[in-house]
Design a protein around this nucleic acid. Structure first.
Lengths: 215, 215
DNA sequence: TCAGACATGTAAGTCGTTACATGATTCA
DNA sequence: TGAATCATGTAACGACTTACATGTCTGA
């Protein structure tokens, strides 16, 4: 079976915090989990209803006037399923890195091609790093004060939240950001080291061009 | 459109080196690209035949006696398609890390749960690191001597290969290993930093247990 | 009044894995 | 002789994204 039901458990995990609508879930994923997770509506709504069919959640209509809203609440069975999944060993993240592939596939081309791919990778990672560093600054403050920044609070704020809980939540959020930060910095360091070494070996061999055809 | 035709281009890229059979491709991916790529037979064989239908490759029967073998050769059109893809900006690797998800979803449980997930992640990454370090040692030697280790040579050796080309190929291989190495070390460093900080904050707050229900 | 957020859902299509089905050859 | 490797493929299933379809409410 392929990657079994990750969406199911992601949803159950969020519902284990509090009852949510599909729209709420989407927002939460986008704001709080976006560094390591994503969900699309096409996956979200059908899965929520499957959860209900399987008795892992219940659905309640919380529409006000003409504004539709369906709130999902986790059941005891759902909570048990979630906790059992949590204890299972997770598989290694799937290994399909398009940029690494491109880089490797330039092996038998001129080094300038490899360098071009590498520079692109570096630029992409640097841009990502900036985003992460901004988030880090914001959440470091939040972890200290125990007060969420408003955007975050709207998405992951809890009913009946106390300072201590929010501070801990901010800290966990900060940790996930730091994970991305360290990995991204490692990727950039790799680019720099590789670019330097590629330039060095290319210089020392004069031109290694193949058949001198195109360009 | 979802992740468009990565398998197509991975195949074209490998065929741009030399003609290959489906089986050859599978071996190459497993041995040389396994740190950042994978292909299954269920994807491979149909895609190779699609490539022929689209005029991006040709198929030749190279069976010997009763041993079937179909060799695929890239066409000019296929080469053009590959090169055009190579110049397109690659998308960021998909962001769906199950272990990060599990970690974050323990936010509102006892810290011991977060720590358990973290230790598991660390163990997984450490095991991966060992594999990478072994590969690094092997390929460092290969990049110096310009001679592939036999397993690798069987999979990615070229007809008419010269020392210089093989040394360069080994170097490129080494680079992809170092990418994994640096990223994996970063992940381990993150685990250590996070475990330490989580232990520290937990100690200073005495027990933060929720409702003291289960276990 | 109109943009943006709130809100739910489906249809079509791609991607990808696993399991199955089949059979030959090589070498210990 | 029997395990490993060579070799090609399909069927079923599930995951996931994108685009579409539809409509409300709030506040500048």
């Amino acid at each position: 079976m392929p990657a079994k039901k990750k969406t199911w458990y992601a949803l159950l995990g969020l519902l284990s915090w509090q009852p949510l609508s599909g729209y709420d879930v989407k927002k939460m994923v986008e704001i709080a989990l976006s560094y390591f997770w994503s969900e699309s509506y096409g996956q979200l709504y059908p899965t929520l209803n499957r959860l209900v069919e399987e008795g892992l959640a219940t659905r309640r209509d919380t529409s006000t006037g003409n504004r539709r809203r369906h709130e999902y609440r986790i059941t005891r069975k759902g909570r048990a399923a979630f906790e059992s999944w949590l204890r299972e060993p997770a598989e290694m993240p799937a290994i399909r890195n398009e940029l690494q592939l491109k880089f490797f596939l330039t092996s038998r081309m001129d080094s300038s091609e490899s360098l071009r791919v590498l520079e692109e990778y570096r630029a992409q990672q640097s841009a990502h790093l900036e985003v992460l560093e901004d988030s880090e600054r914001i959440m470091e403050n939040s972890a200290k004060t125990g007060v969420f920044p408003p955007e975050i609070d709207g998405a992951i704020g809890l009913q009946g939240n106390d300072r201590e809980t929010e501070a801990h939540q901010s800290l966990m959020f900060l940790f996930t950001i730091r994970h991305g930060l360290l990995r991204t910095r490692a990727a950039i360091a790799w680019c720099d080291e590789t670019i330097a070494q590629l330039r060095r070996t290319t210089r020392s061999q004069t031109s290694r061009s193949k058949k001198g055809g195109e360009r």
